[in-house]
Design a protein around this nucleic acid. Structure first.
Lengths: 246, 246
DNA sequence: AGAGAATTTGAACCGTGGTTCAAAGCGCGA
DNA sequence: TCGCGCTTTGAACCACGGTTCAAATTCTCT
């Protein structure tokens, strides 16, 4: 009960310590994202920086903390983004939302230090999760308010801002699953197109939208798929790892 | 080298076997989704059905297979959906896309047996992953073609159909992260609103969109956040599990 | 009832991976 | 150069969880 103050002072007090921590965080983040959270071991993270597994524990108390800090980092950047747009002079909600979308994609896919998204939030322990969720909620609220403002101003159609926010965030966060730095488009470009897509939608001219007459989810009702996926197919037991593409 | 044909016949040949497998698959799927793939152990899945861990191996050769089958199942339903819409008489691309969106959300969030999305694809071993990725690609292509068709017909604005598909799928797949069966809206309702949102976008009237004059991602450049997240905060070591909310 | 197959059990095996720790290195001021 | 903290090491610890297996139980058909 008294070890906290004393025992903890022993760890990482030097000048380069903070920088070192950034490096570790960076490597961890990169690996988490590339190979998955559970697939990356502490030894692996350490090896990526030419150091030893046990040495990591001189800078971070646990893997959990590594993950938590990654998320805090990213979340911090996103919140900065949201706040930054808010402080600007008089900009319309749609302009601000555009920038936010573009920035979001950029932060998630190009930012160097901690690029791990909200993904895997439930992997962090309860105590830390609470803080993360609170900040995430804050970010989501910011977006939602922006949409509400747009609706109030008449710029946006009257929509369920909660759902719209969720749809928006889904599209944006999902980018980490497929975006490739050496792909044909930069993160910022993707962000720009996404903004356009989400704000203007797909439809072109005056919507001659007749409510789909057919049965919408009727096809989904075919649950009884006879022998669709036979279980007795060839099953190669055991097989591990390998490189994972996008 | 000769065990395959012989040894495997010993497993699960009875009449109720197939039904049993469905049950297992269902429980696994439910748990995977609720507590996360790695958080759910075989013993847990077994316990959920009142059986024993080792008993599962009488029906499935490995946890990997459990996961793979879950994904195959879901993917199969989605492909059915895509094909179903295609076979219909003369329906416009936007109508078909609407239905597909609605169906997608429904399948992912209400379907009983295997509701695990494309998520976690890289968790399955190489051999099986290949098949899954192929089918997933097939599904994505179907959507993309739908969009292309819509563009060709003039119903949709000229967009990068690849990006549009990705944005769409992101929004849809992300629903599994927040959707709650006992929430205020059913999966189908959510799907319907999403369809509307994605097809029509947020903007209302004639877009008086002046290209955002300000610096778009300028705020994102603030990487040097001074002491924003101090690392020396209180760090509670060790802490495990706990219930995870959405 | 009884034989043989289908199913289930429970305990043990075992690799993996997060974590700890005492014993070195290393750097720098005195 | 000596000493003293900051760092790093490497090996070992240990629990967790997927998996195996031989024995026990249940089911079914005659």
């Amino acid at each position: 009960m008294v070890q906290s103050a004393t025992a903890r002072r022993l760890e990482a007090s030097g000048p380069g310590a903070e920088k070192r921590r950034r490096e570790i965080l960076g490597a961890a983040s990169r690996l988490f994202r590339a190979r998955g959270l559970h697939a990356t071991g502490m030894r692996e993270i350490a090896a990526a920086l030419g150091m030893t597994a046990g040495n990591l524990y001189y800078y971070f108390p646990s893997k959990q903390d590594l993950l938590a800090y990654c998320q805090e980092e990213t979340l911090g950047q996103l919140l900065d983004l949201a706040r930054g747009g808010a402080s600007g002079p008089r900009r319309t909600p749609d302009q601000r939302l555009r920038d936010l979308i573009e920035g979001h994609v950029t932060v998630l896919n190009e930012a160097t230090p901690g690029s791990l998204a909200h993904l895997e939030v439930n992997e962090v322990a309860a105590a830390r999760r609470a803080s993360l969720l609170a900040r995430r909620r804050s970010y989501e609220t910011a977006i939602r308010r922006l949409i509400d403002a747009g609706v109030a101003a008449g710029t946006f159609r009257p929509v369920d801002s909660r759902l719209a926010t969720l749809a928006l965030l889904g599209a944006l966060n999902w980018t980490v699953k497929w975006f490739q730095p050496d792909g044909r488009k930069s993160a910022t470009e993707v962000g720009r197109e996404f903004a356009d897509l989400l704000l203007r939608g797909l439809l072109s001219g005056a919507p001659k939208h007749a409510r789909a007459a057919g049965s919408p989810a009727a096809a989904a009702k075919r649950h009884e798929r006879p022998g669709a996926t036979s279980f007795n197919g060839s099953l190669s037991k055991r097989e591990r790892g390998g490189s994972n593409g996008a």
